[in-house]
Simulated scan of single mutants.
Amino acid sequence: MIMANGQEVRQTITQAELLQQAIQRLEAAGVPDARRNAEWILCEVLGCSRAQLYAYPERPVDAARQAHVAALLTRRLRREPLQYVLGYVEFLGLRLEVGPGVLVPRPETEWLTEQVLQEMPAAPAQRVLDVGTGSGCIALAIKHHRPDAEVWACDISLDALTIAQRNARRLRLNVHWVVADVLATSFPESVPGSFDLIVSNPPYLAWHEADELPPEVRDYEPPIALYAGEDPLRFYRALARHGHVLLKQGGRLACEVHAHYGSDVVRLFERSGYEKVRLEHDLAGNPRLVWAWKLS
């Protein structure tokens, strides 16, 4: 008999038995989508696909792998994000490292990046700036799908940029990384304009929304990447101001927005002198993406 993280580990157990045990423990702890979480953890440890996990239910799992499953399961039971537990997330065909200190890329941001890629003209080659890059998901996806683009990305967090740079090296994608604070007046001096496109998924939650968040987000993801303070529009004000300096004539802003504040961001950009400002809804029907053109 072996003990791992306070849990009993048997010398032999089948994949099916181990999966069922994991599901039961996750369900008892109130972890959402317990079965899918258990599947992800077992597939990661066993090095198999979901189909293979169910195709060979009687395949034995040795004690070392049982211990590894138990260790990952313990972290998930504490409500640590599954992506942190696994150490990666899939984003538009790229496997990106994520962990403490960096925001977990959301499906909404993946959808936004798809819209940006569809809108980018085939020629000439575009100069793109990703503000608040985090894991580098937007910048790296753009560079991967549009290798002709010159892509710059910035963040105020050194922890986030370290992870983004590791992702870039592993994926062999050439992105220019800069430490910069978009709220600083001197921000335009940190990045070399002019750009055809500035894209950003800035912090947009107000402090009072923290209690409404699941523990995976509230207790683990970096507050600096989540909260705008009590003014949910302050990052958009900064982007509007800097866009006039950094965008070429005819250049565009593309910003992810809080579902509750999409119309407010549209009005802010219009009052800031941008034209053809439009709000797009994501696949769930929520306001999610604001476009704004610098035409003069």
Rank of each mutant, 00 (worst) to 15 (best):
P188A: 12
G101R: 10
V182G: 00
N37P: 05
L140C: 06
R172A: 14
V151P: 05
V31G: 02
H242G: 12
W40N: 10
A64C: 06
A184M: 00
A238D: 01
G30I: 03
A122C: 04
A184P: 01
R234V: 13
Q52L: 15
S135V: 00
D62P: 08
L183Q: 05
V277W: 01
V98Y: 04
R25F: 08
V89S: 09
R166M: 09
E209Y: 10
D211H: 05
R59Y: 03
A228D: 06
K248T: 11
G30W: 04
R218A: 12
R95S: 11
G134N: 05
I41F: 11
W293Y: 00
R106N: 03
E97K: 14
V9Y: 09
R146K: 13
A160T: 02
G93W: 07
G6N: 13
G47K: 08
A71C: 13
S194D: 02
N5M: 15
G250K: 08
T113N: 07
K248G: 03
N167M: 02
E150C: 11
P105N: 01
W111S: 08
L19M: 14
S272G: 15
P215S: 03
P188W: 13
G132W: 09
C154L: 05
E90M: 09
E189R: 14
Q11C: 00
V182P: 00
E39K: 05
Q15Y: 10
D130A: 09
R234L: 14
R35I: 06
A164R: 03
S194E: 04
V179P: 05
I138K: 07
L19N: 10
A16V: 00
V89D: 03
E58H: 12
A168P: 12
G30D: 02
L140Y: 06
R169M: 13
T162I: 00
A240L: 12
L161C: 06
P192N: 08
F91E: 00
W111M: 09
V151A: 07
T12V: 10
L295K: 07
V178Y: 08
A122F: 02
H144T: 09
Q118N: 14
Q83C: 03
A240Q: 12
V178P: 03
L239A: 10
V128D: 10
P223M: 03
V151M: 09
L161V: 07
I163K: 10
R267C: 02
H242K: 14
E90I: 02
A160Y: 11
M120Y: 02
H242D: 15
K248H: 03
G229C: 03
Q165T: 06
Q83V: 01
E8H: 14
E256H: 12
A160M: 07
N174P: 00
A34S: 14
S190C: 13
W177Q: 10
I198L: 15
Q249F: 01
L161E: 08
L295V: 08
H260Q: 12
L279G: 01
M120K: 03
H244C: 06
V191I: 07
D62E: 11
D33M: 10
A28R: 15
H68F: 06
A225P: 12
L42K: 09
A55D: 13
L268N: 05
E114R: 15
H258Q: 12
L72Q: 13
K276C: 00
Q165H: 08
P107R: 13
V116H: 08
R10F: 04
E44T: 11
R166L: 09
C48M: 15
G243P: 12
G132Q: 04
A210C: 04
